[in-house]
Each structure stands twice: as structure tokens, then as C-alpha cells.
Write a protein that binds this DNA or RNA. Structure first.
Length: 839
RNA sequence: GCCGGAGUGGCGGAACUGGCAGACGCGCACGGUUCAGGGCCGUGUAUCGUAAGAUGUGAGGGUUCGACUCCCUCCUCCGGCACCA
């Protein structure tokens, strides 16, 4: 009988299903293993090969871990709120809920077809009111703890999507989703104080096993810098110094090199100084144009613009020198104090600005290497002409009065302390972050309603927890209003509400949560979701909240042992969900005995490119449908191919021709196995038994290390030698082979398992252990080199002394040929490896 | 610009801790199969050379008996951040 995957695969999927092989067992005494991948957004396009790559990889791990005796939780769910579905609704008039249901069903059908070993009983769906009740509950807790607040802020506005975007969603000034240029717009928004967790999000990265590139991306994004805030007095034309400006610097060691001050165009000091600035008209004009530029998002690095505030000067507290004050758009009002000290010699941005404005330069750091003697007299003003660029490195201080000769790293401490103690409170240590608070409002329809009401008497009031979920109303028109408000704003019955606190007439929030909200806690939901009914959306928990109710399950399953997801979420979902987890841990919704991190280990799969290493996209018409591949070649072939195609974490092009190779491999297995089944009573030949044990070892190790491609190549090698040897595996060894094959190709393994007359399912067998002696390399071949070049090999048997081996090597014809007529200078001997004769 | 990662046959890639470079697969070539094609099976397949042999892991240099692997300089590609003071 020929290998016919279409004829067997469904049968075994049903058998797994019937026997509930993949059901995770709560509170089991077995060691638990929680495997998670980022649950898919159920788009209309259906499953793509990128999904498959990570699902298959984790499915391989899940199947192996189960066989190793772990109680594996490998769940699946749907991230179903979001823009694509809503845009689809706007276009077609189909309700997002209906579209979502259809898409979800399609995904589900596809995943079932591919035979993944999910525990389907815990399936979640973020747009299900039973689920988003708790997403809303979390929001209310954040509000109660002062971590959710409403603020009028300039936001990144996408004019095409008509939506506000978080900083993380703006890519190079463009909307992440549609690519339209993002503009700035003032809006009232719900904000989450993720900045309060900045330090912990940073420090706790030490506690987790993430790829270095992911940790770095998060570190960069949080962007912690420690430095000093220094007050500079502002002197007006009349000589009065009743104003001051605070600047932030990480290089207080360059304080004596300050030759000007720069404020951001939006800086509040301008309002105060208004009457003292002689060129105020020009300054205001500049502020206007700077805002225009900011709105267009085209601040260029090359064109350094700025304007001097005439009539006022600043005084450097270190040396009391008067320096000019500028306004320039290269200084951001959003970071630090919105003002900086200009050190042209030691900061490239200040350097460029000073060159353009013809400002003085003074060198205060001399590179260590260049340092010879201390300069006798410090020339304060030096023309910029002699410098080509700023020196931003470390060195010895010069031109810095009493600090001359100090290394810059030491000066950073000494100058700060000196300012603080000797001159009074004009300097303070300060830490700033690039991370901003998280904009949590979207002026849209298809998201979790924000359960807040605005009351004139009581300000913003959350709904009572017992009134959750606040369900999304059914509407007909999904377009946002022209002012950019949510379509919910058009519904009177929605907007009009009663204050939960005082009962007065109030106004309901019309914004909804961003698409990241549901995924903030879904890894917790999987721990207990099968225990909840999904029918009754008003269902009450016995305990105060669902997390308390299922505390034991959460404590048992969390943290996630292995979390796989895309690189694109390194600073989005992965950071957000760490933040929310920490918050839930702080309020003890998550048991304290768990650590402060939700995910122990994180991996990222490389994306799959189209043939010829171009991006896979609809417009290019090179999208591969994994279902088509599975239907044509079989599910196991798809799995083997996707795992074999290349290193898991690396980007890799699809190659349909190579899929055939995977199919051929399975056919080879089928044919060899069928023949072998007739000889199960034979004795396994030693050489093939050894090969088998080497393969067990290799596969066991490779799966744990994400090296699926080499695991499969070792299976291929084994099959080749099995086939070429013409010998057979006995029944036990044949079973061992099927077991190590089964994580990769579970269907064919089951079919052969049954054919060979084994009891039960292959999927529930114990993972084989290899015999250390048998797993050793075949034979010890000594490599014989002359001058580092391989000339011959020597097969060794038993114990032979070093001297004897050297003699034997020199006696070989192929070696003596190269040594003859020359003096042997040295013989290098590496036991078990090689002999190198140097002549 | 800064920070990561990577450069190996026609292609995807393999190589433990410095010790046989190119495993495994694709493709290709030739041969076989009562063989139209396809499929399947066998053999071969880094480059130059009839061969002996020489050369060869982005380029150049270094350390070493020995370098894809370690060190220095440079180039290219990919990813992240990007006026963050």
C-alpha cells in the first residue's frame, strides 16, 4: 500500500479528539508546561504560512513535552477586536461581530484540518462579552489606582484611519497600518501610566529568558537615562535674575563647555519671559512655523533651525558666564525638562547648531590618548572653525577650573555634588525615560467600550463592577464622525447615562480600547477558561472577581514557560502585557507567590518570504496558502517542510519545489517501514541500533534548542542508513523510531504504530531515552595532517599509546610521501581527533 | 548616525569547545526502469585541472601546529531605534 496521507490523517485526528489526548489537566501532580503562541487575529484572509511556522514549531514541542511526562497546556484563542474587521464593516456593511464569527470559524476549521494538539476546551475570544467583562474590570482597577487618567494631549493622528495612535504604532512618522503620514492633533484621551512601571519593566528583563534582540528593543524603547537637572538663572536687559530655566543633561562633566541654552519651541518659560524678549514677534512667528513643521512631521536633522531670545541671557552656575538663549525645534518639549545646555564641542547636535548660528566653542574634554599636559591657561572662546566634529567620548577635563585633569566619569559625580552642596539647590540628580504613557483610547467602534461615565459633579466615574460587562451596542453605521469621534458618539441612548455615584445625568465615554487590550491578560484566562460557561454573559463569579475565583489554577499554570511571538510585538504587546501583568500582580489579582513576570522564555519565529526572497503579499500574488499545501501533499508534509526549511528564528524564503522533498522523505519512511513491519521479529543490527540512539539524542536536544531543521536532517540521515543497510529494526526499536518521528509527523507515526500492531496511540507513549554508549560516534577516525592539511585517516581500535599512533601515522604511505626529505619539527597529538605532523 | 544579527556551492542551509568545510534537502547532469511525459531507482554534483594536485567559508591583515569558528581594519545585507540632551 502506498503512502496516502489524505486517507489517514483525518482518522488519527479523530482518534486524538475522542481520547482527549491533548487536554491539559488542572492542578495535576505531573510537572506542568505552559506553551503559548500569540493568539491569532482572525482576519478574513485565513491562516497563512507564517502562522503555521510558529504553530507547528510549538506543536512539536508540545507533543514531545507530553511524551516526556509533562502536563502540557497548549491553548488557542482569538484576538478578535480590531481595525481590519471594522474597516471591512465600513466597506461592506457587514457587522464586525458577524464577520468575526465567520473568520473565527474559518480559522478554526483550518487549524482542525492541520491537526494541532491544542486543548480546544479553553478557547477564548476577546470580543466575547464574557471575556471583555474582565478586560473592562482591569481598566476600572487601573483607574481606581490612579493609573488610568484622561488627558488632553497632542496625539498622533492618522487622517486616513481617523484614529489616534500610540507612539509605538507610528513607524517613521507614518501610520503603522495604512502608511499615511501621521499628524498631531489635540484630543482628550485615556492614558495608562506605564511610565510608572518603567524601572521595573527594565530591571525585570534580567529575570527572563528572552532573545537578546528582544531585550534590547525593550531597553531602547524604555530609554532610561540618568543625569542631572540644573537651574540656569535668566537675566533680563535690566540685569534682573528673577527667572530661571531647568535643563536636563547626562553630561554634567561638560558644564564648563556650555556656550548657549536651547529651549523647545513649546517651552512654558517663553510665556513668562514674553515682556523681556525684544524680538518677541519673530520668536512667536518661529514658534508657529515650528508647530507647522511638527504637525507635518518633517523635522529634518540637517536643517538646524532656531531663533535667539534677544534681551535675555542665561547664567552658567558653574562659572557665572552669561550665555545666549535660543529656541530651536531640535529640542523636544516631550522629553526631559524641554530645555538643554548647548555644548558644541562635545555634542554633535549642539555642534551643528553652533556652527550654523556662529556661536562660540570651548573644549572641555580631551580624549585620554591625546592628553599630554594640562593647558596652562584656558582660552574660553574658541572659534568653531578649528573643529570638524564634536568629541562625545570620555577623557580628561580641561578648561574647567578646579576640575581640570579629572577623568570625565569622575567629574560627572564631582561637579554634580559641588553644584548641589557649595552653591545651593541648583542641581539635582534626575532620571528620564523615552517611554511615554500609553494612549488607551480609540475613537472607534469595534473594541471594548471603556466603562467610564463623565458626571459634572463627580468628574470621571467608573461603572460599578457588578454592572460589567458594558456591552457594545448594535449599530448600523460604523464610520467615525468627521470630528474623529467614535460612531458610538452618534447614539444618544449610548451617550446619555446616569452617574453611578450621585445619580445625576451624565455622559458616557464613547471611545473604545485599543486592539492591545484583550491580549493584556489572555495568558491568564487560559488557566481556567474551560471552567466558565460562555452562554450567559452576565454570569457572576462566587468570589469577588474571576482572578480570585480561579486563583489556584492561575497559580498552577503561570508563568508561561515558553512564549512564542513575532518580533513586531517586542515593544507593543510584549511590553504592554508585561505591564498589565505586573499591575495585576501588585493588586494581587495574580497570586503573589508567582513572580513579577508572566513569561519565562520568549522566542520569535523568522518571517516567511515568498519565492525569490521577496515579501509575501497579496498584491504580489505570491501568497502561499498552507491549506492548499496540506491538501495536496498532506499535513505531515507541510509540517516536515516548514520545520526543515531553515533555522526557526531566521527569515526564510518559501520554496514549493522543496516541499516535494519533505513528501519524498515521508514516502521513503512509509516504504521502509512497511517492509520492516514484516521483520519485526528480526534482531536490530548493531550499526543501525547505534544510529538510532544517536538520532534519539540529537532530536531530544534539538527540539529543546529550537533546531528543528537539524533534527529533521538527522531523521533523514537515519532513514537513509536504515534503508541502505537493508537490515531491520525489531519491534521495540521500530516503536522508538515512530516515537521520535511523531512530534514532527504525528499522523504517519500513528498509522504505522497501528500497522505494526502496537497498542494505544503513539501520541501518548513515553519519550525514548538514548543509551549513552550506543549513542557514541560510530568509530574513532584519527585525522592525519601534515602542516595542518588533511592527508590521510587512520582507523583506531582499542587502546593504543600516543607514541605507537605517531609511529603508525608516519608509516602510512600517504603521510611519508609528504614528510620524506624533510625534518619533522613537531608532532601535535589530539587524543581521539588527529595527529598533525609539522615539517 | 547609534545598537543588534548575518555574509559558506546554482538554491535553502550544516559544521560540537579552534581539529575531515559543504551534512541533509532542493535543483541540475548522466544512466536505469518494456521508459510518451511525469514518477520512481542509481550515480555524480564547490572551483581550476586529463591527472597528481592546487585553491576555497564577504575583502584584507593577525594569532595558532591548525581558523567558517578567536583578534584587528574594512565592505555588504537584514532588523531595531532615531534630534531623547
Amino acid at each position: 500500500m502506498n503512502y496516502n496521507p489524505q486517507g489517514i490523517e483525518f482518522k488519527w485526528q479523530e482518534a486524538w479528539d475522542k481520547n482527549q489526548v491533548f487536554k491539559a489537566e488542572d492542578l495535576s501532580k505531573k510537572p506542568k508546561f505552559y506553551l503559548l503562541f500569540e493568539f491569532p487575529y482572525a482576519s478574513g484572509a485565513g491562516l497563512h504560512v507564517g502562522h503555521c511556522r510558529s504553530f507547528i514549531a510549538l506543536d512539536v514541542v508540545a507533543r514531545k513535552k507530553r511524551m516526556e511526562g509533562f502536563n502540557v497546556l497548549f491553548p488557542i484563542g482569538w484576538d478578535s477586536f480590531g481595525l481590519p474587521t471594522e474597516n471591512y464593516a465600513i466597506k461592506t456593511g457587514i457587522h464586525p461581530a458577524a464577520a468575526t464569527q465567520q473568520n473565527t470559524e474559518n480559522f478554526k476549521k483550518q487549524l482542525k484540518f492541520l491537526g494541532f494538539s491544542f486543548d480546544w476546551s479553553r478557547e477564548i475570544n476577546t470580543s466575547d462579552p464574557v471575556y471583555y467583562k474582565w478586560t473592562q474590570w482591569i481598566f476600572v482597577q487601573l483607574f481606581k489606582k490612579g493609573l488610568a487618567y484622561k488627558a488632553k494631549i497632542p496625539i498622533n493622528w492618522c487622517p486616513s484611519c481617523k484614529i489616534g495612535l500610540a507612539n509605538e504604532e507610528v513607524i517613521a512618522g507614518n501610520c503603522e497600518r495604512c502608511g499615511t503620514k501621521v499628524v498631531q492633533k489635540e484630543r482628550e484621551q485615556w492614558m495608562l501610566k506605564i511610565t510608572k512601571y518603567a524601572d521595573r519593566l527594565l530591571e525585570d528583563l534580567e529575570k527572563v529568558d528572552y532573545p537578546e534582540r528582544v531585550k534590547l528593543a525593550q531597553k531602547e524603547w524604555i530609554g532610561k537615562s540618568e543625569g542631572w537637572v540644573i537651574k540656569f538663572k535668566i537675566k533680563n536687559a535690566k540685569g534682573k535674575t528673577d527667572n530661571e530655566v531647568e535643563i536636563f543633561t547626562t553630561r554634567i562633566d561638560t558644564l564648563f563647555g556650555v556656550t548657549f541654552l536651547v529651549l523647545a519651541p513649546e517651552h512654558s518659560a517663553i510665556e513668562k519671559l514674553k515682556t523681556q524678549i525684544s524680538n518677541i514677534k519673530a520668536v512667536e512667528q518661529y514658534i508657529g512655523s515650528a508647530q507647522m513643521k511638527a504637525a507635518k512631521n518633517n523635522q529634518g536633522k540637517d536643517a538646524r533651525s532656531g531663533i535667539e531670545l534677544r534681551g535675555v541671557t542665561a547664567i552658567n552656575p558653574a562659572n557665572n558666564r552669561e550665555i545666549p538663549v535660543f529656541l530651536a525645534d531640535y529640542v523636544s518639549s516631550q522629553y526631559g525638562t524641554g530645555a538643554i545646555m548647548g555644548v558644541p564641542c562635545h555634542d554633535q547636535r549642539d555642534f551643528d547648531f553652533a556652527k550654523q548660528k556662529n556661536l562660540p566653542f570651548v573644549e572641555v574634554i580631551e580624549p585620554y590618548q591625546a592628553h599630554k599636559t594640562l593647558p596652562q591657561k584656558a582660552p574660553w572662546i574658541v572659534s568653531g572653525g578649528q573643529f570638524e566634529s564634536a568629541y562625545e567620548g570620555e577623557g580628561f577635563l580641561i578648561n574647567s577650573e578646579r576640575f581640570d585633569g579629572l577623568p570625565s566619569f569622575a567629574a560627572r559625580v564631582r561637579i554634580g555634588e559641588w553644584l548641589q552642596k557649595k552653591i545651593g539647590k541648583i542641581a539635582e540628580k534626575a532620571t528620564y525615560y523615552k517611554l511615554r504613557d500609553w494612549i488607551f483610547s480609540r475613537q472607534r467602534y469595534w473594541g471594548e467600550p471603556i466603562p467610564m461615565v463623565y458626571c459634572k459633579n463627580c468628574n470621571w466615574v467608573p461603572l460599578k463592577e457588578s454592572d460589567l460587562p458594558l456591552e457594545l451596542p448594535d449599530i448600523k453605521e460604523y464610520k467615525p464622525t468627521d470630528e474623529g469621534d467614535s460612531p458610538l458618539a452618534k447614539i444618544k441612548g449610548w451617550v446619555n447615562a446616569i452617574c453611578p455615584k450621585c445619580g445625576a445625568v451624565a455622559r458616557r465615554e464613547t471611545d473604545v480600547m485599543p486592539n492591545w487590550a484583550g491580549s493584556n491578560w489572555y495568558y491568564l484566562a487560559f488557566a481556567f477558561w474551560h471552567k466558565l460557561g460562555t452562554q450567559n454573559s452576565k454570569r457572576k463569579t462566587q468570589k469577588e472577581n474571576i482572578f480570585e475565583q480561579y486563583e489556584k489554577e492561575i497559580a498552577y499554570w503561570l508563568p508561561v514557560d515558553w512564549y512564542n511571538g513575532g518580533m513586531e510585538h517586542a515593544t507593543l504587546h510584549l511590553l504592554y502585557s508585561r505591564f498589565i501583568y505586573k499591575f495585576l500582580w501588585d493588586i494581587e489579582a495574580v497570586p503573589k507567590l508567582l513572580g513579577p513576570e508572566p513569561y519565562k522564555k520568549r522566542t520569535s519565529h523568522g518571517i516567511i518570504l515568498g519565492e525569490g526572497s521577496v515579501k509575501m503579499s497579496k498584491s504580489k500574488g505570491n501568497v502561499i496558502d498552507p491549506l492548499e499545501i496540506a491538501k495536496e501533499f498532506g499535513v505531515d508534509t507541510l509540517r516536515i517542510y516548514q520545520m526543515f526549511m531553515g533555522p526557526y528564528e531566521q527569515m526564510i524564503p518559501w520554496d514549493t519545489k522543496s516541499v516535494k522533498g519533505a513528501r519524498r522523505f515521508l514516502e521513503k519512511i512509509w516504504n521502509v517501514a512497511e517492509k520492516n513491519i514484516e521483520h519485526l521479529k528480526d534482531k536490530t543490527a548493531l550499526s543501525i541500533e547505534k544510529a538510532l540512539h544517536r538520532t534519539i539524542k540529537k532530536i531530544t536536544e534539538d527540539i529543546d534548542n529550537l533546531k528543528f531543521n537539524t533534527a529533521i536532517s538527522s531523521l533523514m540521515e537515519f532513514c537513509n542508513s536504515w534503508k541502505d543497510s537493508g537490515s531491520y529494526l525489531n519491534k521495540k526499536d521500530f516503536g522508538v523510531f515512530l516515537k521520535i518521528l511523531s512530534p514532527f509527523a504525528p499522523h504517519i507515526s500513528e498509522a504505522l504504530w497501528e500497522k505494526a500492531g502496537f497498542e494505544g496511540l503513539c501520541a501518548v507513549q513515553l519519550w525514548p531515552k538514548y543509551n549513552k554508549v550506543l549513542a557514541q560516534p560510530e568509530s574513532t577516525m584519527l585525522i592525519l595532517q601534515v602542516n595542518g592539511k588533511m592527508r590521510d585517516k587512520l582507523e583506531t581500535v582499542g587502546d593504543i599509546s600516543e607514541e605507537e599512533l605517531k609511529e603508525m601515522a608516519l608509516a602510512r604511505e600517504k603521510i611519508s610521501k609528504w614528510v620524506r626529505g624533510q625534518t619533522v619539527r613537531r608532532v601535535v597529538f589530539v587524543p581521539g581527533k588527529l595527529i598533525n605532523i609539522v615539517v
